[in-house]
Amino acid sequence: MMHKKAHDDLSKYVMCDRCNSLYRKVQLPAGKRARCKKCGAILYRYDPAYLDRALALALSGIIFFVLANLFPLIRVGLWGKEHTLTLFSAISVLEGGGFYIVAIGVTLLVLVIPLLVIVDYAVLILLLKLGKRPEMARRLLVSLSHLIPWSMVDIFTVSVLIALVKLSGKVTIHFGVAFWALVIYAGIDLYLTRARRIGTLWEIYERRYHGQ
């Protein structure tokens, strides 16, 4: 275990995630961000309202995610007959056709992991705001960074649009309410997990529980 002095010294540094250049952190004014001199990647930012915004977004994200899975995404029609696409029906068609591995993969990437990510995020932000249960917050943060690379709702949303282009002219297409919920959820997910880095949350965690 390293002693307190060395720990404090190291937390003054930041390493660019694109090119590994090392920088010493400075205090930024609110709303500003620091960029890497070599490659232009964002190193860190100071965003004092982030927790409030993230909590609001994560909670609405959960609502939109539930809506996106309860209602039909797309309705297609051919000669008077109509079929609806929901996430569950698509997965059960795959499973019924014997494509178990594909069905398990899609279930995990589009259903289970995104749900875990958004619930994990919401609980984590609540804990950070209340400043309670540091050990649980640490565990949630660690699992969040393992889950995020496997959450693919954004890619799934684009794929549904590509599938519709493939079908255009062959069947009639109506967008369901769940499709728009999915688009909004994907936007929230992109903002929380891709536009903002996990390191930002760790810094808030350090300030909350270790008083830095």
């Binding site: 297609v76 698509a90 997965i91 795959l94 794929s159 590509i162 599938a163 493939k166 069947v171």
Partner: peptide
């Protein structure tokens, strides 16, 4: 894979 999932779920 997701395009195939969506297509086979709809059509």
């Amino acid at each position: 894979i997701f395009v195939v999932t969506a297509l086979s779920g709809m059509v």
